[in-house]
Design a protein around this nucleic acid. Sequence first.
DNA 1: GGTGGAAAGTTAGCGGTGTTCAGATAACAC
DNA 2: GTGTTATCTGAACACCGCTAACTTTCCACC
Lengths: 248, 248
Amino acid sequence: MTTRTADTDVPRRRARRGEGDRLREDILQATIGLLAETGDLDAVSIRAVAKRVGVTPPSIYLHFPDKQSLLDAACEPVFADLARYFAEACHGVSSPLERLGLMGVAYVQFALDNREPFRIVFMSRCESDTIMSMTPADLEAQTAFGPVIQTVVEAQQAGLLGAGNAREVAMRLWIGVHGVASLLISKPYFPWPPIEQLVNDFVCMVGLGLLVQTRVPGSAADKFATMLADLPVVESASPAGNVPKSAS
Amino acid sequence: MTTRTADTDVPRRRARRGEGDRLREDILQATIGLLAETGDLDAVSIRAVAKRVGVTPPSIYLHFPDKQSLLDAACEPVFADLARYFAEACHGVSSPLERLGLMGVAYVQFALDNREPFRIVFMSRCESDTIMSMTPADLEAQTAFGPVIQTVVEAQQAGLLGAGNAREVAMRLWIGVHGVASLLISKPYFPWPPIEQLVNDFVCMVGLGLLVQTRVPGSAADKFATMLADLPVVESASPAGNVPKSAS
DNA sequence: GGTGGAAAGTTAGCGGTGTTCAGATAACAC
DNA sequence: GTGTTATCTGAACACCGCTAACTTTCCACC
């Protein structure tokens, strides 16, 4: 008749010798589940996680130094999925340029499918960030950022994109779709256009921009001058919609 | 004589009848100051604000229904400055297209100058968002978003940008620079390229993309096809210096 | 000058949070 | 059985947002 103060349904069996790490895994799963089900970071308190696991709060500190570390660790397996999103989006698509666009769309979809982890990793302050304090090399090797860079390189080698630092090009692409993802998450009630259209239009814009930026020679001003000169002139007061014009 | 438990240096003189709103203003200023000085939202507790003002915590609830409302109210005057950032950036620049680019750069600068307010308004969950639940019309009239749309319209009228929903075009521009701003804020330790270059390259890319997107006729696929056909072909093997060493 | 009334602020406290540390307990080797 | 020790708990600290009930101060009016 032990008086259980731990407020839980099924009081965990204590782990066997050497199996202490089992609890660690259970804590992570409980955290991930709580994040996904509540969709609210505030609902994921140390006490709530402990209760779900069937253990008392201090036990968590045997496996994680503090709450932030727990959250970071819980987001890691979620983010491992991002690579899968990318792979599936690119499946069977040969053009590297098209693949980059599809990866962008997939990034937004991933963010919307994993809002809280995305928030934790990309939208909250983190002093000593595990993911982000990696060296550039590690970052490319261990995160989903690597495939993006690789695809940029392929596009360059195929002559679709002009030469340029592939890492920085990939960053620009990432930054762009990150704007979409983070705004859709933080401002869901904003009067956005239909999401699919919004994402497509944006990705299209960025893709075209990159094309021109890397292929037209000269300074930024030169590029603009060239494009303004080359593109068909549009009449000033156009009424509405995409008016088809006499192409030259 | 009076035993003061309120932990503060100079015990405020009580406001006179009808001057209760003076405290409200002081609370707002204390909140803004605390946010700016600590640069840490966690440091801005109701108790901390109250102490800074020289008052006890419950007094704050005489002027703000809850903490979130206080934070929102504190961010409002800060964000009023965004319009000034835009105006200064555009000062004396005639080309609407160029102005749009400068506004983008100014947006990032504003975010970096006001990190915590930017975080609060744009990077944290807010169920019933004051700013974001406005009607599109109010939004354009009362926020800095209006001038952006206006500039897009001017660019269209000048024949620089093709016709299209100016509001959606402005959104795309906003989304883009928002990606830059939010990532620079949330990941300051990431190995970014020099910020100025990063921002310029990104804004240039988006600008060129928008140019093409709105001026080249046809579907998205058509636009890509047109540009791939029209732009100078680039040699496949890019020269040294730009090739990332993924394996070497 | 006294006095009632209301505005302006305070005291005390509730239930919650992340975190710490000394102690209890259960699993194993012998 | 006994001792060791990995594993986990009880109790507590300092802080949080927030509330209800109370006190103080100011002011208009008689």
